[in-house]
Design a protein around this nucleic acid. Structure first.
Lengths: 122, 122
DNA sequence: TCCTTACGATTACAGATGTAGTCGTGGATC
DNA sequence: GATCCACGACTACATCTGTAATCGTAAGGA
């Protein structure tokens, strides 16, 4: 439903999903410095995200306080489904199988997932 | 390692992962008609994929016979890892947990994954 | 009151992407 | 041999992305 969020925009969303509302400066401060983004870049992202309707804001004096307008859970679901549809014929088991085979899950991981699945069956 | 494959390009790769080598016309014929792509579009994709080094070709007279230069498995791994890294902190368990919570796992899926994990432990 | 500053809005610009169209040419056809 | 056709190569062009810079202005300080 919602418009597509690009990689760079996603970084901004993560900050706001973690903490909101925030000003543009706050967001800039919380962006991983490794990205080396200028504050202008962050502002551009914020504008685009507003345009895409995935962020909302309220005015605080002359500034905006930004907050997510879509739940992270929903975004994660949509993206996960896209991947599963595109690469695994829409089936989740092959995805897990693939990850398991390629990523050498530790015994602890396996135990954790098993416990999780067991809990589900009850 | 390999360059990024776009969505549209991916459609072409899928055709060639399914059957290769193929001529441009063959690929065009096998692309889902729902995309409504002209043969030119397919040719553009083929060129770009060659440029990205994920396709190879051999000449057959005046035409090219295209074939994948990267394994689908590797592509799938890379893409899956990207998603898991971006959205689940690189851990698979939260991904499974997410899918489970969203009721995307049927009882059959759960049984299947359990069997899969059990096999892994041996 | 004037100046600086900090905001959001608007504009910039190169590279990627989606979706073709045009060009030059080697083979096939008559 | 003259035509035409089909191929890959090259060009086109709007939109999206990444990454800013600039503009107009309100608020705050001197």
């Amino acid at each position: 439903m919602t418009e597509r969020i690009s990689d760079a925009e996603h970084a901004v969303m993560e900050v706001l999903w973690d903490e909101a509302p925030l000003t543009a400066a706050d967001v800039h401060q919380r962006i991983d410095p490794a990205r080396g983004w200028s504050d202008r870049t962050v502002k551009t992202m914020l504008s685009r995200l507003l345009g895409k309707g995935v962020l909302a804001y309220e005015e605080e004096g002359r500034r905006y306080l930004y907050r997510p307008a879509v739940a992270r859970e929903d975004y994660v679901s949509t993206e996960s489904r896209r991947l599963v549809d595109r690469l695994f014929g829409g089936r989740i088991t092959p995805l897990v199988a693939h990850l398991a085979e390629r990523d050498e899950l530790t015994d602890a991981d396996i135990a954790e997932i098993e416990a999780l699945l067991k809990a589900l069956k009850s």
